[in-house]
Simulated assay, not measured.
Amino acid sequence: MKVIIDTSSLLSLVRYYLPFDKKTKLFDFIKAEFENGNLILIDAVYQECEYTSKGIVLKSLDYLLIKKFKKDFNLPFKTKDLIPPSTKKFYNLLNDNFRTPLSKKLNDAEFEERKKEFLETADARMIILALIKKSEKEDVVIITEETEIGNDHKAFKKIPAICKILDIEVMTLPELLEAYKGIDVEFK
Protein backbone atom coordinates (compact mmCIF):
# COMPACT_ATOMS: atom_id res chain seq x y z
CA MET A 1 0.00 0.00 0.00
CA LYS A 2 1.28 3.47 -0.92
CA VAL A 3 0.61 6.07 1.75
CA ILE A 4 0.55 9.79 0.96
CA ILE A 5 0.84 11.70 4.23
CA ASP A 6 -0.47 15.17 5.02
CA THR A 7 1.12 17.84 7.20
CA SER A 8 -1.59 17.43 9.85
CA SER A 9 -0.74 13.75 10.32
CA LEU A 10 2.99 14.40 10.44
CA LEU A 11 2.36 17.03 13.12
CA SER A 12 0.29 14.54 15.11
CA LEU A 13 3.04 11.95 14.73
CA VAL A 14 5.78 14.17 16.13
CA ARG A 15 3.65 15.85 18.80
CA TYR A 16 1.60 12.99 20.21
CA TYR A 17 3.34 9.73 19.32
CA LEU A 18 7.10 10.15 19.03
CA PRO A 19 7.56 11.71 22.49
CA PHE A 20 6.42 8.37 23.94
CA ASP A 21 8.44 6.25 21.50
CA LYS A 22 11.32 5.70 23.91
CA LYS A 23 12.70 2.67 22.05
CA THR A 24 12.38 4.50 18.68
CA LYS A 25 10.36 1.64 17.17
CA LEU A 26 7.88 4.00 15.55
CA PHE A 27 10.57 6.48 14.49
CA ASP A 28 12.57 3.69 12.83
CA PHE A 29 9.46 2.20 11.22
CA ILE A 30 8.42 5.53 9.68
CA LYS A 31 11.97 6.05 8.39
CA ALA A 32 11.94 2.56 6.84
CA GLU A 33 8.60 3.28 5.15
CA PHE A 34 10.08 6.42 3.57
CA GLU A 35 13.11 4.37 2.47
CA ASN A 36 11.08 1.59 0.84
CA GLY A 37 8.81 4.09 -0.94
CA ASN A 38 5.60 3.04 0.79
CA LEU A 39 5.31 6.37 2.63
CA ILE A 40 5.22 9.33 0.26
CA LEU A 41 6.04 12.86 1.32
CA ILE A 42 5.22 15.33 -1.44
CA ASP A 43 7.07 18.59 -1.99
CA ALA A 44 4.13 20.81 -1.01
CA VAL A 45 3.72 18.99 2.33
CA TYR A 46 7.48 19.19 2.91
CA GLN A 47 7.33 22.96 2.35
CA GLU A 48 4.46 23.25 4.83
CA CYS A 49 6.51 21.26 7.35
CA GLU A 50 9.38 23.73 7.02
CA TYR A 51 7.35 26.57 8.50
CA THR A 52 4.51 24.91 10.43
CA SER A 53 5.09 24.93 14.20
CA LYS A 54 8.65 26.18 13.77
CA GLY A 55 9.62 23.18 11.65
CA ILE A 56 8.93 20.63 14.40
CA VAL A 57 8.24 17.81 11.90
CA LEU A 58 11.58 18.14 10.15
CA LYS A 59 13.45 18.65 13.41
CA SER A 60 11.86 15.50 14.86
CA LEU A 61 12.27 13.43 11.70
CA ASP A 62 15.76 14.84 11.20
CA TYR A 63 16.68 12.41 8.42
CA LEU A 64 14.29 14.41 6.21
CA LEU A 65 16.81 17.26 6.40
CA ILE A 66 19.75 15.17 5.16
CA LYS A 67 20.44 15.84 1.47
CA LYS A 68 21.79 12.33 0.78
CA PHE A 69 18.77 10.68 2.41
CA LYS A 70 16.37 12.84 0.40
CA LYS A 71 18.25 12.16 -2.84
CA ASP A 72 18.58 8.41 -2.24
CA PHE A 73 14.86 8.00 -1.52
CA ASN A 74 13.38 10.63 -3.88
CA LEU A 75 12.14 12.86 -1.08
CA PRO A 76 10.20 14.98 -1.24
CA PHE A 77 8.24 13.61 -4.20
CA LYS A 78 7.91 16.32 -6.86
CA THR A 79 4.30 17.15 -7.74
CA LYS A 80 4.44 20.55 -9.44
CA ASP A 81 3.83 19.19 -12.95
CA LEU A 82 1.40 16.38 -12.17
CA ILE A 83 -1.65 16.16 -14.41
CA PRO A 84 -4.71 14.28 -13.15
CA PRO A 85 -5.81 11.24 -15.14
CA SER A 86 -9.15 11.86 -16.85
CA THR A 87 -8.25 15.53 -16.79
CA LYS A 88 -11.53 16.80 -18.22
CA LYS A 89 -13.55 14.77 -15.71
CA PHE A 90 -11.36 16.00 -12.84
CA TYR A 91 -11.82 19.66 -13.80
CA ASN A 92 -15.56 19.18 -14.19
CA LEU A 93 -15.68 17.75 -10.67
CA LEU A 94 -13.51 20.60 -9.45
CA ASN A 95 -15.88 23.15 -10.97
CA ASP A 96 -19.04 21.46 -9.72
CA ASN A 97 -18.64 18.86 -6.97
CA PHE A 98 -15.59 19.97 -4.97
CA ARG A 99 -16.91 23.48 -4.35
CA THR A 100 -18.18 24.69 -1.01
CA PRO A 101 -21.31 26.83 -0.72
CA LEU A 102 -19.01 29.82 -0.13
CA SER A 103 -17.40 29.42 -3.55
CA LYS A 104 -20.76 29.53 -5.27
CA LYS A 105 -21.07 33.16 -4.13
CA LEU A 106 -17.90 34.14 -6.01
CA ASN A 107 -18.00 35.70 -9.44
CA ASP A 108 -16.30 33.80 -12.29
CA ALA A 109 -12.99 35.67 -12.03
CA GLU A 110 -12.80 35.20 -8.24
CA PHE A 111 -13.63 31.50 -8.58
CA GLU A 112 -10.97 30.97 -11.26
CA GLU A 113 -8.39 32.64 -8.99
CA ARG A 114 -9.40 30.44 -6.04
CA LYS A 115 -9.29 27.35 -8.26
CA LYS A 116 -5.78 28.23 -9.43
CA GLU A 117 -4.69 28.73 -5.80
CA PHE A 118 -6.30 25.43 -4.72
CA LEU A 119 -4.48 23.46 -7.43
CA GLU A 120 -1.17 24.70 -5.98
CA THR A 121 -1.99 23.45 -2.47
CA ALA A 122 -0.66 20.32 -0.84
CA ASP A 123 -4.23 19.02 -0.58
CA ALA A 124 -4.84 19.17 -4.33
CA ARG A 125 -1.43 17.72 -5.15
CA MET A 126 -1.91 14.78 -2.78
CA ILE A 127 -5.30 14.08 -4.33
CA ILE A 128 -3.92 14.24 -7.88
CA LEU A 129 -1.02 11.94 -6.96
CA ALA A 130 -3.48 9.49 -5.38
CA LEU A 131 -5.56 9.53 -8.57
CA ILE A 132 -2.44 8.79 -10.63
CA LYS A 133 -1.43 5.91 -8.34
CA LYS A 134 -4.99 4.58 -8.45
CA SER A 135 -5.05 4.76 -12.27
CA GLU A 136 -1.81 2.73 -12.23
CA LYS A 137 -3.70 0.09 -10.18
CA GLU A 138 -1.72 0.78 -7.02
CA ASP A 139 -3.36 0.50 -3.63
CA VAL A 140 -3.17 4.06 -2.26
CA VAL A 141 -4.41 5.90 0.80
CA ILE A 142 -4.15 9.51 1.94
CA ILE A 143 -3.39 10.05 5.61
CA THR A 144 -4.81 13.22 7.13
CA GLU A 145 -6.32 14.38 10.38
CA GLU A 146 -8.85 16.53 8.50
CA THR A 147 -12.54 15.74 8.68
CA GLU A 148 -15.12 16.11 5.93
CA ILE A 149 -16.72 19.07 7.67
CA GLY A 150 -15.55 22.36 6.19
CA ASN A 151 -15.08 25.06 8.81
CA ASP A 152 -12.36 27.21 7.36
CA HIS A 153 -14.27 29.32 4.83
CA LYS A 154 -12.38 27.94 1.85
CA ALA A 155 -13.69 27.64 -1.69
CA PHE A 156 -13.15 23.87 -1.90
CA LYS A 157 -14.06 20.94 0.27
CA LYS A 158 -11.60 19.24 2.57
CA ILE A 159 -9.50 16.21 1.61
CA PRO A 160 -11.85 13.53 3.03
CA ALA A 161 -14.90 15.01 1.27
CA ILE A 162 -13.13 15.24 -2.09
CA CYS A 163 -11.65 11.75 -1.69
CA LYS A 164 -15.11 10.36 -0.95
CA ILE A 165 -16.30 11.70 -4.31
CA LEU A 166 -13.21 10.26 -6.07
CA ASP A 167 -13.31 6.93 -4.20
CA ILE A 168 -9.85 7.41 -2.72
CA GLU A 169 -9.26 5.84 0.68
CA VAL A 170 -8.54 8.22 3.55
CA MET A 171 -7.30 7.32 7.02
CA THR A 172 -6.18 9.15 10.11
CA LEU A 173 -2.77 8.46 11.60
CA PRO A 174 -4.19 6.21 14.37
CA GLU A 175 -6.08 4.19 11.75
CA LEU A 176 -2.89 3.81 9.70
CA LEU A 177 -0.84 2.70 12.68
CA GLU A 178 -3.51 0.15 13.53
CA ALA A 179 -3.51 -1.13 9.93
CA TYR A 180 0.26 -1.60 9.83
CA LYS A 181 1.13 -5.15 10.75
CA GLY A 182 4.26 -5.60 12.81
CA ILE A 183 4.34 -2.11 14.29
CA ASP A 184 3.66 -2.79 17.93
CA VAL A 185 4.36 0.55 19.54
CA GLU A 186 4.79 0.54 23.28
CA PHE A 187 4.13 3.73 25.21
CA LYS A 188 6.29 3.12 28.27
Rank of each mutant, 00 (worst) to 15 (best):
S53G: 00
S53T: 06
I56F: 00
I56P: 00
L58F: 05
S60F: 04
D62K: 11
L64W: 02
L65K: 14
K68A: 12
D72E: 15
D72L: 10
D72R: 10
D72H: 08
F73C: 01
F73G: 02
N74E: 14
N74V: 09
F77V: 07
F77M: 12
K78E: 14
L82I: 10
I83Q: 12
K89A: 12
K89I: 15
N92C: 08
L94E: 07
N95R: 09
F98D: 06
F98M: 10
T100E: 03
P101Q: 09
L102F: 15
K105F: 05
K115L: 06
K115P: 02
L119C: 06
T121C: 08
D123I: 08
A124F: 04
M126E: 01
I127P: 06
I128R: 03
I132R: 10
E136D: 14
K137C: 11
E138A: 11
D139A: 11
V140G: 05
V140L: 08
I143G: 03
T144P: 03
T144D: 00
E145G: 13
E146R: 05
T147W: 00
E148M: 12
D152I: 10
H153I: 13
A155D: 07
F156S: 06
K158L: 11
P160Q: 11
A161C: 02
I165K: 13
L166W: 02
L166N: 03
D167A: 13
D167Y: 08
T172V: 03
E175Y: 04
